[in-house]
Design a protein around this nucleic acid. Structure first.
Lengths: 113, 113
DNA sequence: CCGAAATACAACGGAGAAGTGGTAGAGTCC
DNA sequence: GGACTCTACCACTTCTCCGTTGTATTTCGG
């Protein structure tokens, strides 16, 4: 679990790439939708109201990053969450956001008028 | 700590933006460098070997996101980590990367020849 | 005061990614 | 076997953002 301190460049690139994959609203929505369980491309298209091409492309990116899994089922393709730790990441970010909002609130209400 | 399930669009945007801020090699390096303690822009420029303008710009982005803190000290400006949870995020990502590598390794060594 | 140093800001060019339209391949139903 | 559906790929346009160049601003030393 030890991580080298002067982070080597390749590792920095990997980490950055990982974050960039999740740093896309459409992909976050896809992951959130898949939280209910596996779904086909068509189902996700209906749920998110996006184009089929767009959904398929983003699912491809998520699959390539190993975050979602792909399984052919006849004509359909079912996608599912492959890396559950993604949700922990999102929750942590949400926690950070909440804390910032709280601090701001304290400054505005309890601090200098 | 409960997070709404059909993630509302504004929250999705916030989360995505947060991830995009960290999804930059230069910014990750800056955060890693600040792990040793506060530092001025010039010190970071020397350590990372990047241009002053570039370092300053990325520090500005990190500061605006509330991830680093800014403190003027004469002509110098000292930056420091304001949101320690950033490191937890990186470690979690590193853990995910490690697990993927491990699984790949198992497939290559123990699986089908 | 005046010059030098440290930092931030504005503008520009270029790379990379997102979204769209069209289309091809794979599979099912009649 | 033919038509229809589902999914992925390709070409294209647009937009965002990174890094650089040039410059303004603030502060310290003489």
């Amino acid at each position: 679990m030890e991580i080298p301190h002067p982070l080597p460049d390749p590792l920095v690139e990997l980490i950055a790439q990982r974050f960039r994959v999740i740093g896309e609203p459409m992909r976050i929505k896809l992951l959130d939708a898949l939280r209910d369980g596996d779904a086909t491309v068509g189902e996700l298209v209906d749920r998110l109201g996006a184009s089929q091409q767009n959904v398929s492309k983003h699912l491809g990116i998520l699959a390539q990053a190993g975050i979602v899994s792909r399984a052919k089922d006849g004509t359909y393709v079912r996608y599912g969450i492959a890396d559950e730790s993604i949700f922990a990441l999102c929750e942590q970010v949400c926690g950070g956001l909440r804390q910032q909002v709280t601090e701001l609130d304290q400054i505005l209400t309890g601090g200098a008028a």
